[in-house]
Computed example of a mutant assay.
Amino acid sequence: MPTAMERFEQRIDKSAGPDGCWPWTGGTFRAGYGRFYDKGKHHVAHRWLLGELRGQHLNWPEERGCHKCDNPPCCNPAHLYIGDAKANQADAMERSGYDWTRTHCPAGHEYSPENTLIGSKGKRCRQCMRDQNAGYRRAKGIKPRGFKAHCLRGHAMVEGNLYVHPKTGNRQCRECKNLRMSRWAKKKRAEARENRQA
């Protein structure tokens, strides 16, 4: 019976040579990263490989499997490194060719901290996004949304149970938010237990 590493290597195309990208030929996640099944669990292929080469699984989310080649399915160890989210984003920004010195969007809105959404492809203006969304709703004949008195689960959106996001101003039900956070924490604890047992 083949080992996990042998099964992994069967799904890599190494035809580009030692310096080229080795694309994953098996199934992929939506973002294009390889999907590898091992020990009853689906793994991101390049992240699994980095963990195997190091002898210890990557500690997500502190440790990320990063590409030097910006090619999501690539599994060439020479193109991979372990980094944190900040280093990964800074690396992607550096290679994007975007002019990060811009102070205003094309429509003239200032790129202030409250009005800026930053991604690997550049800065995005929140005001332009809001205007675009409002224009779409007007074109479709959709009435402007007012403040909801209750959340989808029926909790009253009153002062004690209302969370307003400091940057976006989005209103959320605090009870539902706490429930989501407790579910997330429970899931992370279960994953940590699985990793310790593995």
Rank of each mutant, 00 (worst) to 15 (best):
R174T: 11
L53Y: 03
V44I: 14
G160N: 10
K68M: 09
S120G: 10
D19H: 11
N76S: 08
Y136L: 15
G83Y: 01
L152F: 12
V44M: 15
H42A: 14
M1R: 15
P106L: 04
I118V: 13
N195K: 14
F8A: 01
N59L: 14
A156N: 05
T3D: 01
N195I: 12
R193Y: 11
R189D: 15
R183K: 09
L53Q: 08
C173P: 01
K188E: 13
Q89N: 10
F8D: 01
R137G: 02
E9T: 08
R183E: 09
A149I: 04
E175W: 05
A190Q: 15
C105N: 02
D19N: 13
G83K: 03
G51P: 07
R47P: 05
H43L: 00
G154H: 00
C151H: 05
R7K: 12
K14D: 04
R126H: 02
R138I: 12
N88P: 06
R11H: 15
G32C: 04
K68Q: 08
Q89E: 10
E63I: 06
Y111V: 02
S96G: 00
K68S: 11
S120P: 09
R153P: 07
G169C: 07
F29Y: 12
C74Y: 07
M181S: 12
H57I: 12
E110A: 15
L117P: 00
E9K: 11
C173D: 03
R171W: 11
C105W: 01
I118W: 00
L162R: 12
N170W: 09
M157Q: 10
C75S: 06
C69T: 00
G97L: 01
L162V: 08
N170R: 12
L179T: 13
R54T: 10
G122E: 01
G40F: 07
D91I: 00
T103F: 00
R130T: 06
Q56W: 10
R30H: 14
A156T: 10
C66H: 07
P144D: 12
C125Q: 02
R64P: 01
H46Y: 12
L117R: 11
A4P: 06
H42N: 13
L117I: 12
N195D: 15
E159G: 09
A45N: 04
G141R: 09
